[in-house]
Computed example of a mutant assay.
Amino acid sequence: MGRLLNYRTATLVVALLATMVASAFSANFYDEFDLTWGGNRGKIFGGGRMLSLGLDRVSGSGFQSKKEYLFGRIDMQLKLVAGNSAGTVTAYYLSSQGPTHDEIDFEFLGNETGQPYVLHTNVFTQGKGNREQQFYLWFDPTKNFHTYSIVWRPQHIIFLVDSVPIRVFKNAEQLGVPFPKSQPMRIYSSLWNADDWATRGGLVKTDWSKAPFTAYYRNFNAAACTVSSGSSFCDPKFKSSFTNGDWQVGNELNAFGRRRLRWVQRYFMIYNYCADLKRFPQGFPPECRSSRL
């Protein structure tokens, strides 16, 4: 128990430091994003420091980045729909376009009051997804803002929550698995109704008497390479965002980062496609062989 408490204390300190760094470098939403659908349900306010998305019986809402990115670290702080959020999905992801698109997903599946959110992650390469891992969180994501990060490198994709690695998707091209490395991607987010599947497989429907539902965003930061008209520009913070940190050394997780990843996957992972024998009775997809740490 003492070891677990010490770990949680260390995690809290890292999260606080991550929040301070995000606050110092956060970008202006007016400059970085366009509200793309949902009418006035999406709002930018606080001088561009805050953004909110809304969902009611008529429509959800969404936004997308003005820039396209090819590798980098993307950080965003979210505070999710509070109360009875069953049936709702808050999606935050990177994606290219077209039938062979690449995509890196965070999706937050709402739940009834008092029941935990499900954090759903997925990776699409060349239009093929079905690489789901799902987690509970070790905190209530509706009470405060928390930082959700995507580290996208030619070697791997790392999903982080408050600087804690929860998932690593390694480049397994040597096994014949495509990896997202050539298609620039925009950042997207949306709040929408998915009560046909989101909560307990669609058994729990959206309670529209609780609408409107609202999710909040702040402290966006991209230490990344942007692509425009065939040319690219890499932010000076791009390199340091991968060489600094208590969870990595060079391009890989260090021993502490691997311990934290195993802690999350042992105590908070609730689904892993790489362990679903019913789904893959003839053997797991080849990238599962390279996902072991």
Rank of each mutant, 00 (worst) to 15 (best):
R73I: 03
T11V: 05
A27H: 11
F284T: 06
L55D: 14
I270D: 02
A24M: 09
Y188E: 01
K43N: 15
E132C: 00
C274L: 00
D56E: 13
S23F: 15
E287Q: 11
A255E: 08
W138P: 15
L5D: 10
A86V: 09
T206I: 10
D140K: 04
F108R: 03
G202Q: 10
Y188Q: 01
E103N: 08
E112P: 12
L12N: 15
T88R: 01
G83C: 10
I166R: 05
V161D: 03
P286C: 07
K67Q: 07
L160P: 07
R131Q: 05
V123K: 08
F179L: 13
G46L: 13
F139P: 03
K79D: 06
E287C: 06
L203K: 06
E107Y: 02
Y7H: 12
F284D: 05
I187N: 00
G47V: 10
A275E: 13
F25A: 11
R186Q: 08
T88L: 09
R258T: 12
G60P: 06
F71Q: 02
F220R: 09
G54V: 14
A255M: 02
Y117E: 08
S163V: 00
Q174K: 08
T206P: 05
Q265C: 04
L203T: 14
S26K: 01
S241K: 00
G38V: 06
K210P: 00
A224I: 04
D102W: 10
K43V: 13
F159L: 11
F45M: 11
S228M: 13
V89S: 02
I74P: 00
W208D: 08
V118M: 10
N244S: 11
Q115N: 15
R131H: 04
V21W: 14
T226M: 01
L109E: 13
A224N: 02
F213R: 05
F233Q: 12
F33E: 02
R153K: 13
A18Q: 05
Q126K: 10
G62R: 11
W138E: 13
N40G: 09
W37S: 03
W192F: 01
S149N: 05
S96N: 10
S182G: 11
L53Q: 04
V249K: 12
L160F: 09
P236V: 01
K66M: 07
R218A: 04
V21G: 09
A15F: 00
Y271Q: 06
S209D: 11
H146M: 10
N40C: 11
Y93L: 03
V21K: 13
A172S: 14
V14C: 03
F213T: 06
E173F: 00
F45N: 11
G87P: 10
Y93P: 06
N111G: 10
V168G: 05
H101R: 15
P165R: 01
Y273G: 09
A27T: 09
G60R: 09
F71L: 06
L12M: 10
Y7R: 15
L51K: 12
G257W: 00
W192P: 07
C288L: 09
A223C: 15
E103W: 04
R186D: 01
P154G: 04
E107G: 06
P184K: 00
W208F: 07
A222N: 08
I44Y: 12
T19G: 13
A194C: 06
